[in-house]
Every structure is written in structure tokens, then in C-alpha cells.
Amino acid sequence: MQTAVDTWTNSTTAPTSARLLEIFRSMMTARLLDEKLAALYRAGKIHGGVFLGKGQEALSAALGQALRRTDVFAPLIRDGAGRLAFGETVVEALRSCLGSPQGPMRSRDGNVHRGRPRDGYLPMISHLGAMISVVGGMLLSRRLRGRRGDIGATCIGDGGVSTGAFHEAVNLAAVEKLPLVIVVANNHYAYSTPIEKQTACRSLVDKAVGYGVQGHTADGTDIVDCCKVIGEAVNRARAGEGPQLVVAELLRLCGHGEHDDANYIDRRLKETTIGRDCLDVARETLQERNIMDAEAIAQLRAEITREIESAVQQVIKEGGPDPFAHDWCALATRRLADPPL
């Protein structure tokens, strides 16, 4: 069973062996889980869509790993790795993707739209940028009640930063000096639209100046750089320096969803540094630093694969919801529900 190690005591930004190992494990688990989800989708076992994080695992896992369990986290589409690093289990991820009534969304919402708000883990809505101000509101609430030390983190892409919701929420967080880390994965395509059609900025990190927040850039393909830059941003937010905007350069190594062959991605980009597979880079890094050798990595892979297979069997057995026994009330205050017509 995948469990994220509590990083409560981790206050340095240094990419220590222990941190890199945790990040790597989440990356590997996310990648293998994604591959399984794609297979289940092709086999017709998954309703709706499947949205994978291939190429974004290092960035996402580095963020999840840098957070404490008491923090607030609002991940986005390609943050399977970050979700695992923040504490989500493989079983729980699968329950949402396969529509199990035992999942946190109880078959009412699926795939990437999952979370546990009571645990500070927010379920995204599909409207990009909408969760940023919600994280801000949770942080504001904690400040008002005198609860200090927690931060919030949220993820968005090079397309999402064009929304009004992003602009309003980042500006508001800056005005209120909230301890918020906003991680932008610039994977160069918003569905099929290239970055040139999203922004005229030289770099997306230039937006930080406009909002009056601190900006950082990271190589999203490099586990060490992600670990260092995200760790630094998290520490600065926690130290009261206000919102932190982290922009990481990378490339989406899959379609927008599994229905998409991504033939619009410029082949030349794949040959550049951003086209590297972050999981390969991480594997090499761990071996170079003598954190894991090839055999240990293969063992880890086998172990995670077994874990995923067993989780899939378990969740498939849980079955789907009973629509006739379902509670069709959208209100918490039952007496105020409009009578069914």
C-alpha cells in the first residue's frame, strides 16, 4: 500500500536522499497507475475520460512531498503523483476512476475530480482556476481563527493561467498575503493550443511581478530541481512571505486524455530538454547518487505493480452504485429540498 511519509519535520529545501526517494516512489506509482488506467479505459472498464500525468510526475510529486498533512492541497488534472505523495492511496484513486460507491466521491464524480475536503485535499471542478480562491478562503479562515503554520498549494497549467478565475484568485491571495504556493506546469499545450496563443509574456513567471508575488522557475523534468525549487517556495510561504508562483517547464508526454493522440505536439520539442521523460531522469539521478541501484528500482517497480493489480481487483469487486437506492438530495438541509416532481 502506498503511504506518503509525513514530512512535518522536513523544513530544509535540500533535496536529501530521503526526500528524493519518496518523490521517486510517488512518481513511479503514478506512472504505473496511469498505465493501468489507460489499459482499463481501452478495455471499456472506465466511464467518461482518463487524464494522465505522464511527464509531470516529478513536479507534482515534489509538491505533494513538500506539504504537511495539515496543509491544504488542490491538485489539478495531471497530479496523480502529487496526490499520492500527499497521502492518497492507490485504492482511493482507483475507486474514483472506476466509480466505486466506496470512494470519496461515492460514484457522483469521477476521475480527476476527487478529494477529501475535511483532510485539506480539495476536489477540483472542471473550470480551470476555480479552486485557487477556495484554497485561499481556507487559509484566510485558518488565519482568522488563529491557526498558524499551515500553507496551501494548488496546481494549474499554461492554459489555466489565462482564466479570469486564476487572475482574480492570485491577485486576492497577494492582497491578503496568504501562504499559498501556485505551481504552474507549463507543458506548452493547453489541449491542442500552443503556449504562443496563451500568453505574450516572455515567461509565465513574469506574471509574478504583475501580481506582486515571488516567482520561481524550475526544470520540470528534473527531480532534483523540482524538489529544490518547490521546497524553497513552500518554506517561503510558510515563513510568511506571501504567495509563491512556481513555473516549471516540461512537456506533456501523452494526449490531453486517452482519447487524444496529441499529434499536434511539435516533434522538435520532444528532442529538447523539456521533452525528456522525468521518470528516466529521476532513475538516473537516483543511481548516480547511489540512492538506488538498477536492481532496487526493478524491485520497487515490481512491488508497486503488484500493489496496483491487487487494488484493481479489490475495487472492481466493489461494483457500482444502485441508482434506485441512491440519495437524490443535493442539500445538506434535507427539509429545504424541493419535493421531487
Binding site: 475536503p117 476555480a130 480562491s133 485561499g136 478562503g137 481556507m138 479562515s141 485558518r142 482574480e168 484568485a169
Partner: peptide, 16 residues
């Protein structure tokens, strides 16, 4: 920022 105002209030409401 009406969008962010309501979003902030949602976050505050979730937190109690």
C-alpha cells in the same frame, strides 16, 4: 473580483 470573492467564501465555509 466576484469569482474569487465567492471562491474565498466557499473555502472559508468549508473550514467552518
Amino acid at each position: 473580483s466576484e469569482d474569487a470573492i465567492v471562491g474565498t467564501a466557499i473555502g472559508a465555509a468549508i473550514e467552518g
